[in-house]
Design a protein around this nucleic acid. Structure first.
Length: 942
RNA sequence: GCCGGAGUGGCGGAAUGGUAGACGCGCACGACUCAAAAUCGUGUCUCGCAAGGGGUGGAGGUUCGAGUCCUCUCUCCGGCACCA
């Protein structure tokens, strides 16, 4: 049976066999069902390069393993001809996607097949097919029926170059995702899907699914849940301004209000605003700004509404009302209460326009060495912390206290009848000897220090005022030896101070003063807040919000989904506009609403769908009253078809339903869905939304469509850049298959690095996997039949265990490296038992299906290896007879010890201690302690 | 700014708190060969002739023992971002 390894011949042979036998799921079988899904493999104008197939290979490994484990596997393929790359290409070429995809999908199909990917080709579906999109339209009408689809006038993003409207997700940094042109805003009537109604569940249900943390976080960021309060502020004109805030506890510090320039109230109050000229001008300017201008401007601007005041419902004080474009119209209520002391944006604005800054939360610092002890008595004090500046240099006085090993500022208590400034001056004069003070002023920051005073057995809670002192000159009084021992003084620069100060509260104060003040973040104890003083800020939120008549609400950043496109391609939205009856859904029997054949697919200049000009198609009779009516000319986005394709895959040929209940019950939810990170806030979110809605109306069996989601890393070009045709750094998989074979390419792509991580392609490294495969091939010459009962070596059992687990964790690289280790070991043997070899072939089959299938048949089998059962391992046979363990002295490795694997602890200890190599380290010392970890290590402590 | 993820040889990367650098690439030497390729063997973190020492971005800490856990810090990648 000796022959040259010829991948080309072997691979084409088996690919033909599989097309009949392996790829097609046996849907009628009684085997347990397993649904593996991969993100749409879309054919793009750029063609396929080696960066593409890696995720398919990864999922193919899983799918092939599942088959061997006895599952009936649904592993489908389909394409979205409305998909972005195709659409992009369509815009460039002016041809309909339908024309383009035929050639691209053919190439793509061929390339994927040549890799031995075991997709279920028989279920291939195409979302441009009216048989498919009929059901997309039908599902849209379900949304309409349940008031989750509605029409609204909104500002859409318009790309002036491509002349098409863009969805939010197609706008990157204010520019068109395809061509980079800055987008304009246009007001248009658009179909919307009310995804915000599901925001809460889309967020919360993430807890119930097995997605990678980064995917969950990204979705949560996007959904943007925030808990807060809605509070009404009354104006002097008796209007109400509703604000949303996540920090109702800071309301006593709300010293002004800001409305978005678009806020409705402004027009209403026009007559009472005495500086309307200025205000009107500002509003006009704000509206003309694009989204980038507005968010790009870091310098805040605004205008006060003179003549209007609001009343802070907590303090009952009158506060000014401003408009500023840093407040966004579409988030919250479009109005805010500004708390400059505790919000950085408000702080910047207040500084610029000289508005009042009032601290209402004192941050708390708990001493790290002597933290407060629960149960101990709390005693309250007032104190002062003092920062001292040099009389002529940019230097500050550092106080080193040897007693506590503190490097800090100066602290002191406030005595009876003293104000904090006086205390500060007194402390400095006493502790440093410096007498002449040029300036003493408050640092506008108050905080609370908490620590335990062990000698008194009490907790101290000290409310600290902070004071800045600049000396007038260096004149110094003699100070007592006692004081000199307590305080070692040194003058340091700003940077040195920052590096030297060891107390975090002192450092905080220093940085606060050095930055010229800033907003005070976080939580703490309420101050200047009337009856809520001394309360914990987090705890006070609800109470304060009730006190001012507000209510706690949850808000989301997520906005409703703009579902209209003014483009030719895409499923026509199946409704008819009738003058008498209004919006009438197309009756089910008339679905699908097909796209008319047209000559020109180009978008129009006026932003209307190209369909609007086709009067034959547009003018119809109203299905309800039979009168004159017009079709909706907007089409759906590419995401419509892709939001439910995984449901259709379970039953792709059903003409009566979007999918039968039985198929859905059998296959859903998807057990494992792998896709790129770029779909996290798009396809993944949309399809979860659709599925949840369909679950609510009883059409699908589970509320989450995907049990487990993973995401792959991209393969980058050899230089580490993204592969793209325009950069000319693409690698064509055909060439690699031609030179090395598909099995080598598959093994390499799985071996090159962790699956979830981006990794650079390296042509040189391909030879490793090729050598490995050739070694496996050559091993067959050593095979002997194992006549007597076969137990398998510990090596085999270890390899089976490792490979089995690693595949589940998508640690394909280490799975392969373990098989390499095993093969290297077999190679050194004179003969190889057939059973052991066959087990190896099974393990390798998901990675290198062609060669393993070929060898399997050369060994005399007639059945397909792909349907053999996955090998088991025996926990009891994992152990070698001998183990090598390390022997350490004080944690340093000094020797190794070979032991019988079932040696006990005592035996291990004695043998380790008796090692001659250790003599020179022990030098007659008696070990204090010997730690024995069986089978791992012995550590001798001397 | 906020939220995630990651920093280990010449390179890709391995290491349930237990012998750091598995496996692969590359490189060096050797065998086979007239020769080369292929293949096989040996070696390959670093300083040192050696005994030994040092070493997982940096500084501390916990532990008998830390790449792994904790605190601080630096750098890189990804996402969100005047989001109240």
């Amino acid at each position: 049976m000796s022959s040259e390894y010829d991948p080309k011949q072997i691979e084409s042979k088996w690919q033909k066999v599989w097309e009949k036998d392996l790829y097609n799921a046996e849907t009628e079988s009684t085997k347990p069902k397993y649904y593996a899904l991969i993100e749409f493999p879309y054919p793009s104008g750029d063609g396929l390069h080696v960066g593409h197939p890696r995720p398919y290979i990864g999922m193919d490994v899983i799918a092939r393993k599942r088959r061997m484990e006895g599952f009936d596997v649904l592993y489908p393929i389909g394409w979205d001809a409305f998909g972005l790359p195709t659409e992009n290409y369509a815009i460039k070429t002016g041809r309909a996607p339908r024309e383009i995809t035929i050639e691209n999908t053919d190439t793509f199909r061929k390339q994927i097949k040549s890799l031995g990917i075991s997709f279920d080709w028989s279920r291939e579906i195409n979302t441009t097919d009216p048989k498919y999109y009929k059901w997309t339209q039908w599902l849209f009408l379900k949304f309409l029926e349940h008031d989750l689809a509605y029409k609204a006038k909104i500002a859409i993003n318009w790309c002036p170059k491509d002349k098409i409207g863009l969805a939010n997700e197609e706008v990157v940094n204010g520019c068109c995702e395809r061509c980079g042109t800055p987008v304009e805003k246009r007001e248009k009537e658009q179909w919307m899907l009310a995804i915000t109604k599901y925001a809460d569940r889309l967020d919360k249900d993430l807890d119930t699914v097995d997605f990678p943390e980064r995917v969950k976080t990204q979705q949560r960021n996007w959904i943007g849940r925030s808990e807060g309060a809605e509070i009404d502020f009354e104006t002097t004109t008796k209007e109400k301004i509703k604000v949303f805030t996540t920090r109702p506890d800071t309301i006593f510090g709300a010293t002004y209000m800001v409305l978005a320039p678009e806020h409705d109230l402004i027009q209403k109050l026009k007559s009472q605003i005495s500086n309307w000229d200025e205000v009107g001008e500002y509003i006009k300017k704000a509206k003309s700004k694009t989204e980038i201008d507005r968010t790009g401007d870091k310098e805040k601007t605004g205008v006060e509404l003179v003549g209007i005041k609001a009343i802070n419902p907590a303090t009952k004080e009158e506060i000014p009302v401003w408009i500023a474009d840093y407040v966004l119209p579409h988030y919250g209520t479009g109005a805010i209460m500004a708390v400059p002391a505790h919000d950085q944006r408000d702080f910047e604005f207040a500084q610029k326009y000289n508005l009042l800054i009032k601290q209402v939360i004192a941050p708390i610092f708990v001493d790290k060495v002597n933290p407060t002890i629960e149960g101990a008595e709390n005693t309250e004090r007032n104190g002062v912390i003092v920062l001292v500046k040099h009389w002529s240099e940019e230097k500050y006085l550092l106080n080193y206290s040897p007693k506590f090993n503190w490097k800090c500022l100066f602290t002191g208590g406030i005595e009876e009848g003293e104000n904090p400034l006086e205390s500060a001056v007194r402390e400095i004069q006493e502790e440093t000897g410096y007498q002449n003070i040029k300036e003493a002023r408050y640092i506008p920051l108050e905080h609370v220090d908490k620590f335990h005073a062990p000698h008194k057995g009490v907790n101290r809670i000290v409310t600290q005022k902070n004071v800045f002192i600049q000396l007038a000159d260096g004149e110094k009084r003699e100070i007592s030896q006692e004081e000199m021992d307590l305080h070692h003084l040194s003058w340091l620069t700003k940077e040195e101070m920052r590096e030297t100060i060891t107390l975090q509260n002192h450092l905080f104060i220093f940085n606060f003063e050095m930055s010229g003040g800033s907003s005070i973040p976080g939580s703490g104890i309420l101050i200047n807040s009337g009856k809520f003083n001394d309360m914990d800020s987090g705890f006070a939120q609800k109470e304060i919000s009730e006190f001012v008549g507000g209510k706690m609400v949850t808000r989301f950043k997520l906005r409703d989904w703009v579902f209209s496109r003014q483009r030719y391609w895409g499923e026509p939205i199946p409704v008819i506009h009738c003058e008498k009856c209004g919006i009438v859904p197309v009756p089910e029997k008339d679905l699908p609403v097909m796209l008319p054949e047209v000559k020109n697919y180009q978008p129009t200049d006026n932003g209307e769908s190209p369909l609007a000009t086709i009067s034959d198609w547009v003018n119809v009779k109203c299905p309800k009253c039979g009168g004159e009516a017009r079709r909706e000319t907007d089409t759906m986005p590419n995401w419509a078809g892709s939001s439910w394709y995984f449901l259709r895959y379970t039953d792709p040929f059903n003409d009566n339903k979007f999918a039968s209940k039985k198929s859905l019950d059998d296959w859903m939810p998807v057990d494992w869905y792998n896709g790129g990170m770029e779909h996290t806030t798009l396809h993944l979110l949309y399809s979860r939304f659709w599925n949840k809605f369909l679950f609510d109306i009883g059409l699908v069996p589970t509320s989450e469509p995907y049990k487990k989601r993973t995401s792959h890393g991209l393969i980058l070009a050899e230089g580490g850049e993204k592969m793209s045709k325009s950069k000319g750094n693409v690698v064509n998989p055909d060439n690699i298959i031609e030179r090395f074979g598909a099995d080598t390419l598959r093994v390499y792509e799985m071996f090159m690095g962790p699956f979830e991580q981006a990794i650079a392609w390296s042509e040189d490294s391909l030879v490793g996997p090729r050598r490995f495969i050739e070694k496996v091939w050559k091993l067959k010459e050593k095979v002997i039949d194992s006549k007597e009962e076969f137990f398998g070596s510990p090596n085999l059992h270890k390899t089976i265990k490792k490979v089995t687990n690693d595949i589940e964790l998508m640690n394909f690289n280490t799975a392969i490296s373990n098989m390499m280790i095993f093969v290297n070991a077999l190679e050194k043997q004179e003969k190889v038992f057939q059973d052991e070899y066959e087990a190896l072939l099974k393990l390798l089959n998901p990675f290198a299906p062609h060669i393993t299938e070929e060898i399997w048949h050369e060994l005399g089998h007639v059945t397909l290896l792909g349907f053999e059962s996955w090998p088991d391992f025996d926990e009891n046979k994992l152990e070698d007879n001998e183990v090598t363990i390390g022997v350490q002295i004080n944690g340093k490795l000094r020797a190794t010890l070979v032991l019988d694997s079932n040696s006990g602890e005592e035996e291990t200890r004695l043998k380790a201690l008796a090692l001659p190599e250790l003599a020179k380290w022990l030098e007659g010392q008696t070990p204090k302690k010997v730690i024995v970890v069986l089978g791992k290590i012995v550590n001798i402590v001397v």
